[in-house]
């Protein structure tokens, strides 16, 4: 049975990856379809890309989504770094269990519940203190920050606990104050985790439909909300074109990141 084991493993992988990638491939292929009927091939065309570029609704929604995603990612990295520091460096303290629960619960909480509860609180707050008034970008950012901080915290905490604490202690020992140690030593060392956390929070925010639908107000539609309302009416070649662009950007970004990492690794090995 030795010789057919590699073959079996290869088959499993081939099947698994086909399952993961065929749907995405079909989206890409049919984005170049002439016909409006997405599933019937009627010749090559890029006309849906042209229509997409002139679809103001999608473009403005994409703009709003990108803004929210950038603000959210930046805020989540700050909050997540603080929370990661507390979990990785502050040892055990009273209230740690409550802290950990609050940090990790959003990871497993159904989106509909997060969305509903935040909206209800925003409404209640408005009745009591008159804020946040109209719902829109601000409320979406707050909601996204709340659940993406959890993800970023996990990323940063694990990097912080892998890091050799004596590096920080050495900096203290050499006369640097705690805040300075954090910015001059800790931040550069965990920089890759900060970048990874930022990208994760950015994607989570860009991807969210459910929570944004709850906490958004009239007039503020994010890209997933526009895509959703279009998709509910049936398949649309413009959405295929949008999907192809998103997949293209992500693939290029990952290839570039992979290449940079590979080059760095090679340089490191060469110098040793």
């Amino acid at each position: 049975m030795r010789h057919w084991r590699p073959f079996l493993l290869f088959t499993v992988l081939a099947f698994g990856y086909a399952f993961l990638y065929l749907p995405i491939m079909s989206l890409i292929v049919y984005s170049f379809n002439e016909s409006r009927l997405v599933t019937v091939w009627a010749g090559f065309s890029t006309k849906w890309y042209g229509e997409l570029v002139h679809n103001d609704q999608i473009l403005s929604a994409a703009g709003l989504s990108l803004q929210i995603a950038v603000i959210n990612a930046t805020g989540a990295v700050i909050l997540g770094t603080l929370a990661g520091l507390v979990l990785a460096r502050f040892g055990r303290f009273r209230g740690r269990t409550a802290f950990t629960t609050l940090i990790t619960a959003p990871l497993v909480m159904p989106e509909v519940i997060i969305g509903l509860s935040l909206l209800l609180m925003f409404v209640a707050m408005e009745n009591v203190i008159g804020w946040p008034g109209t719902r829109g970008m601000t409320t979406i950012v707050i909601a996204h920050l709340t659940f993406s901080t959890a993800y970023v915290t996990v990323v940063i905490q694990s990097r912080l606990s892998q890091m050799d604490v004596s590096i920080e202690e050495a900096a203290l020992d050499l006369g640097a104050k705690p805040a300075k140690v954090f910015f001059v030593i800790t931040v550069p060392v965990i920089a890759p985790a900060l970048v990874a956390g930022w990208l994760l929070a950015f994607t989570l925010s860009l991807d969210d439909l459910v929570v944004a639908s709850f906490v958004s107000g009239p007039g503020a539609s994010t890209l997933p909300m526009v895509v959703y309302s279009s998709v509910r009416l049936g398949v649309s070649p413009q959405i295929n074109a949008l999907a192809t662009i998103i997949v293209g950007i992500v693939t290029v970004a990952i290839l570039v990141a992979g290449y940079l990492m590979h080059r760095q690794e090679k340089q490191r090995l060469k110098m040793q």
Partner: peptide
């Protein structure tokens, strides 16, 4: 291989679900 597992996660969740409509519907792929 791991990157290939994670990569779909970075693309839109909504659009990945949408892809299955085109595959599974009555006159789908």
């Amino acid at each position: 291989l791991l990157m290939l597992i994670i990569l779909p996660f970075w693309t839109s969740f909504l659009i990945r679900v949408y892809a299955w409509i085109g595959i599974l519907k009555n006159n789908g792929l």
